[in-house]
């Protein structure tokens, strides 16, 4: 059998032939019975191979194993959808700002601000209490950047989103008497801190807020997490957070009553 016929048969069987080639093959088959027989054998072989494939069944235990693994991957994926990922690439393969890119600066800023606040706190405060405060604040720091709040880790206790505004009355949380005590400890002369949701201070938000010493609570269960801004960045960062603040003000009766849990996710 010449090579041309083999080539035509191969192309015909594997969807590679043009109409002209098919016509040429069928004409060859009608002229030469050997060619027709060869084509028939090829077709039979193809059918038998397909039959062989169709015999294969996926054993139920293998199927269960695969699906179990996929379920586990899916659960991981769902978890990472619930909590912002620290990786730079999401499941769709799109580049996403990672913590380092987007919030690295914010984290450093917050850490610096917390450190400044602690160092500038009341001399009445015991060193041990300051250390305790450092540990607690580090444990629950939230970073505000642009219009996004990123939860750096899961938080299971109340979280307070606060920021500094100059010379406004203190809004005390009814549930935080200890905080009031601490405020006294931390420095009664300190400029006050106010929640972002207080309507009385909306105007003040437009202006850059100076950093002020904060009253820092000590009791673990009542301790707020602080989102602090560095002085030099206050104006721009506050401007960037306005959108976020406006959105969330509509949701919050009082920021001091907000509790974020591991189920909370803010974009």
């Amino acid at each position: 059998m010449n090579e041309r016929i083999q080539e035509l048969i191969s192309a015909y069987l594997h969807r590679g032939s043009t109409p002209e080639q098919e016509r040429e093959l069928f004409e060859a088959c009608s002229r030469n019975p050997e060619t027709a027989e060869l084509l028939r054998q090829h077709l039979v072989l193809s059918l038998k191979l397909r039959g062989l494939r169709d015999d294969v069944q996926v054993p139920s235990d293998l199927q269960s194993t695969v699906l179990r693994r996929i379920n586990s991957l899916e659960a991981e994926g769902l978890r990472s959808e619930t909590l912002p990922s620290a990786t730079a690439v999401d499941q769709d393969g799109k580049r996403r700002f990672g913590l380092i890119h987007l919030f690295g600066t914010g984290l450093a800023t917050a850490a610096c601000a917390v450190a400044i606040l602690l160092l500038s706190g009341s001399p009445d405060q015991e060193p041990a209490a300051r250390l305790q405060t450092v540990a607690q604040v580090q444990d629950t720091v939230y970073i505000v950047e642009k219009d996004t709040v990123t939860q750096l880790r899961e938080v299971e206790r109340p979280v307070y989103i606060v920021r500094n505004v100059p010379a406004e009355p203190v809004l005390e949380s009814p549930a935080t008497n200890d905080q009031g005590d601490l405020a006294a400890k931390a420095g009664n002369n300190a400029p006050v801190r106010e929640t972002v949701s207080d309507p009385a201070t909306q105007a003040n938000r437009e202006a850059p807020a100076p950093v002020s010493p904060a009253r820092i609570p000590t009791r673990a269960e009542d301790l707020p997490a602080l989102a602090e801004m560095q002085p030099g960045e206050a104006a721009t960062r506050e401007a960037k957070t306005e959108n976020y603040i406006e959105q969330y003000n509509s949701m919050l009766v009082s920021v001091e009553t907000v509790r974020l849990s591991s189920k909370d996710r803010i974009h």
Partner: peptide, 11 residues
């Protein structure tokens, strides 16, 4: 062969 005959892939 398997790709061609089992799966019917084109060449």
């Amino acid at each position: 062969l398997l790709l061609a005959e089992f799966e019917g892939f084109a060449l």
